[in-house]
């Protein structure tokens, strides 16, 4: 039997799904490595209706196969859409910043409803979420990882059970 590991439910942004099928070195490779590792380990991917829609729009052939395999292995955690999240975004200055944040709110909602892990290539959104954590302390425990930026650690982190790391949490990031 395979060793029993902790299974964590991870929200994976469509940016990772798209990049995995591209030839954009080293981002694409980092995304592929991350997805294959999740498939091999017992972790699950979280899907809510808005996340699934984004995946459908941006999914590459590689990540489509990956999601099919995850589905067949009962490794997709389907959740209902959460619509009651309201953020205090008074710290943001521009309309564009609000748009970026709005676009990725479904990721945060899904993460808060599950194991509070988001994997995304979108560093701009991460920085904005970090900025609003002071006014929205509920976001503090959410870990936001970039498979490229943390590529040297992410595989081992997954293997070790994707445990909470305060330096990856929105509330623990020093900007």
């Amino acid at each position: 039997m395979r060793p029993v590991r902790t299974s964590r439910r991870i929200v994976v942004d469509a940016s990772v799904a798209r990049a995995a099928g591209e030839h954009n070195h080293p981002t694409s490779k980092a995304c592929r490595d991350f997805l294959i590792e999740v498939l091999g380990i017992c972790h699950k991917v979280v899907m809510s209706p808005p996340i699934r829609n984004e995946w459908k729009k941006h999914c590459s052939s590689f990540s489509h196969k990956w999601l099919t395999s995850m589905t067949a292995r009962k490794k997709v955690a389907n959740i209902a859409e959460e619509r009651d999240m309201s953020l205090d975004c008074s710290g943001l200055s521009s309309r564009r910043q609000h748009q970026v944040l709005d676009k990725d709110v479904p990721l945060l909602e899904a993460a808060l409803a599950t194991d509070k892990i988001v994997v995304s290539l979108d560093d701009e959104a991460r920085k904005l979420f970090v900025r609003v954590t002071r006014a929205n302390p509920g976001l503090n425990p959410v870990m936001w990882l970039n498979p490229l930026a943390q590529s040297d650690q992410v595989v081992e982190w997954l293997k070790q059970g994707a445990k909470t790391r305060s330096d990856w949490q929105l509330g623990g990031v020093k900007e």
């Binding site: 395979r2 294959i36 091999g40 196969k65 395999s69 589905t71 067949a72 292995r73 009962k74």
Partner: peptide, 15 residues
């Protein structure tokens, strides 16, 4: 039609 987690399957090899 889901079968759960396997030791390794064809999908893993294809991916």
């Amino acid at each position: 039609g889901r079968f759960g987690d396997w030791p390794e399957d064809f999908d893993e090899v294809a991916l």
